[in-house]
Design a protein around this nucleic acid. Structure first.
Lengths: 204, 204
DNA sequence: CCACTTCGTTCCATATCCGGAACGTTCCGG
DNA sequence: CCGGAACGTTCCGGATATGGAACGAAGTGG
């Protein structure tokens, strides 16, 4: 980052103030004072204070010490899990995991389609397949010429190297997971899902 | 931190070297150079180099920039995802997400079955269903009287209120995700996995 | 009413993290 | 062979995160 050389304070993509609020909330839930937490975590009060007020960009070590003492995963302070990232118009996609195997790359997403969503995706690299599982709501999805309708628990796979569509049926939002499989070496040009600016920053 | 006052370099609870190795692996999987990644992420080559060799304790901002560019959650670099929790004998299960819907509770796990694993699970509460997706390796799974064999990308669902089995086929470990669906009110006493502890420090 | 304690913030010297530049390698193409 | 380009590491001045100490503000007990 450091995109903007004019601001002395770096244009952080993470909302430090929000992170600070979460941290303070966590601490207060446990009913311990700032001084106490700082002491237990082995960091300076000044550091913790700065962290909670969102004026510091902590070191991994510092963050670790604090979250460890609070017994929460570091992600508890971050934007939101894997941080939802926009994809297409309204669909929210969160990358949960990515695996790189010998012959293919896998990316597991959690998706939310707001009611009314109707989106068509351009083809992905050759050989790419999508494996969709619906948790809640009803979704009509698949290749544009052979879509199927899925209710909660429904599952569908298709080749994603042709145009395909997602269309919410009914008035409820749709919650789903999507496993994308990119055969090795086709992911290269990353023409597809744009795995998402993962953690989710705000452009740059 | 700073538990050890004698070492000038603070006794970090995170294994920076290990984190660096993971980072480098992620970068190389994508086939891009250190210089290139540094440029894309908007950080200095020196910084990235230091990170990958494990000699730097990065700022949250730096870490964010890199993981964002790699499109992985920050946790991909940390000790171990959501902290694996033992379940059964050798199978490792990590709870990725849990959803509470009106009519059911969903739990999404990432599973690792070491080669040779063969495990039979007792019945879950009535109405429970399991939805398994294999990422790597070959797994024979399902109700004990009607198992099926799944390769990478394979998917299978079954009612889990009867005894069912997981059996690794071949010499490779199996990576998979498992979606458990507990119809409302039957989930009762959390028969399974503990959502995982926090960052997992080294005691203190 | 006043010592005393604890709280969270601010000040400050020091430690160290950051990125640009310089450097030694390796890998081509001519 | 020899330039040129790209790679990853090291060097270094400048920026900033860190923790100890000082500080004012509340609370507490005598």
């Amino acid at each position: 980052m450091k995109s903007d050389a004019s601001t002395s304070r770096p244009a952080m993509d993470i909302d430090l103030a929000e992170m600070g609020r979460r941290l303070r909330a966590l601490r207060e839930e446990r009913g311990i004072s700032l001084s106490e937490l700082a002491r237990r975590a082995g960091i300076g009060k000044a550091t913790l204070s700065g962290l909670e007020t969102g004026v510091r960009n902590p070191t991994l070590e510092t963050l670790w010490a604090v979250t460890a003492e609070l017994a929460v995963p570091i992600t508890a302070l971050l934007p939101r899990w894997g941080e939802p990232t926009l994809r297409g118009a309204s669909v929210q996609a969160t990358l949960l995991e990515a695996f790189d195997e010998e012959s293919a790359t896998y990316e597991l997403y959690r998706l939310t389609f707001p009611a009314g969503t109707e989106q068509t995706s351009p083809p992905h690299p050759p050989g790419t397949t999508e494996h969709l599982t619906v948790f809640a709501g009803t979704l009509r999805a698949g290749p544009v010429d052979a879509p199927r309708t899925l209710g909660p628990g429904g599952h569908l796979s298709w080749r994603a190297d042709v145009p395909h569509r997602y269309q919410v049926v009914g008035a409820d939002d749709v919650q789903a997971s999507l496993l994308m499989r990119y055969p090795r070496s086709s992911r290269a040009t990353d023409s597809g899902v744009q795995p998402s600016r993962a953690p989710g920053r705000s452009a740059r």
